[in-house]
Simulated scan of single mutants.
Amino acid sequence: MPETDAKKIGRVTRERFDEIVAELRAEVREDHRIQFVVGDRALEVEPMRRRGGSMPNGDDDLFTVSESLHLLSEETGILYSTIERHRWTAFEFVTSKVEPAPTGPSMVVAAEAQLVTEAGECPGEVLVFTQGGYLSWLEVCSWSDDIEVTLAAARHWLQTRS
């Protein structure tokens, strides 16, 4: 790693480089916030329906869920898949069950959950790490030689507990 007190980094001064870093950090913070705004607004336009609820029901619904979200996508310039994903995340996100992530300059385990199968076995755990106050990565750990522990399996086991 080059020394960080150099007068120039790439084609910009150290001062300009620090301004760029501060600007990008602010944009990243805003980007994380905007994901929830998009999801919340998409849920407002089209609340989640029961399975098979994609068709309009009666005279009240003029559009299917897909049509409404496609129109929202076209009008905002946000990809349909992004709107759909953020809508689902907003639906699944229960703020009362979430605590703020621990902050600090080093890597921190922000959350952990043991995985429990339908049979009551505990084949592993999920760890969520933060660094510098930002979510950093998710780790799925396996303690079992007999039960395959994957991200999909972990999600299933965690959802069946709630």
Rank of each mutant, 00 (worst) to 15 (best):
H32K: 15
A26L: 09
R41M: 06
E23G: 03
G104I: 06
L71F: 01
M107N: 06
T130W: 12
L127G: 00
V140D: 05
A6T: 12
G53S: 04
P56F: 01
H70P: 09
A26I: 01
L115E: 01
C122Q: 14
L62R: 09
T160I: 09
F91S: 07
G104N: 07
R11L: 09
V65N: 05
N57C: 13
W88Y: 02
L135W: 12
W157E: 02
C141Q: 07
V108E: 08
S68M: 01
N57W: 00
V21C: 11
V108G: 00
L62N: 08
Y80R: 03
T4K: 13
L138D: 03
I20A: 11
F36N: 11
E112I: 08
P2C: 02
H86C: 01
A111G: 10
V116Y: 02
V140T: 14
E99F: 13
G10W: 13
V38W: 03
V28P: 01
V12Q: 11
F129E: 08
A22C: 05
I147A: 05
V98F: 04
E75L: 14
A113P: 00
W157A: 04
A154W: 06
W157R: 13
P102K: 09
G133S: 05
D18Q: 13
E99K: 11
E74Y: 09
H32D: 14
T89Y: 01
F36T: 03
S81F: 03
R51K: 03
M48H: 02
T130L: 03
D60H: 03
L71R: 13
G52A: 10
R41V: 15
P123F: 10
L138Q: 05
P105G: 15
D5F: 06
D61W: 00
T64M: 00
V94E: 15
D5A: 07
M48W: 00
Q114V: 12
R49L: 05
M55I: 01
S81P: 02
Y80K: 02
G53W: 05
H156A: 12
L151H: 08
G10D: 07
A90Y: 00
M48Q: 10
P123H: 08
A90P: 04
S68E: 02
R49P: 07
E46Q: 13
E125F: 11
L62V: 04
E23N: 04
S81C: 09
R29D: 11
R11I: 07
E44Q: 12
T64D: 01
A101S: 08
V12F: 15
I147V: 12
W137F: 10
G52Q: 10
T103K: 15
L158D: 04
E44H: 12
V140M: 07
E92L: 05
D145A: 12
S136V: 00
E15Q: 11
F63A: 02
A119Y: 09
L62K: 13
V37W: 10
G10K: 03
E121M: 05
A90C: 02
V21G: 02
A42Q: 06
A119N: 14
S162H: 09
L62S: 10
I147C: 04
L79R: 14
T103D: 04
A152T: 07
M1T: 04
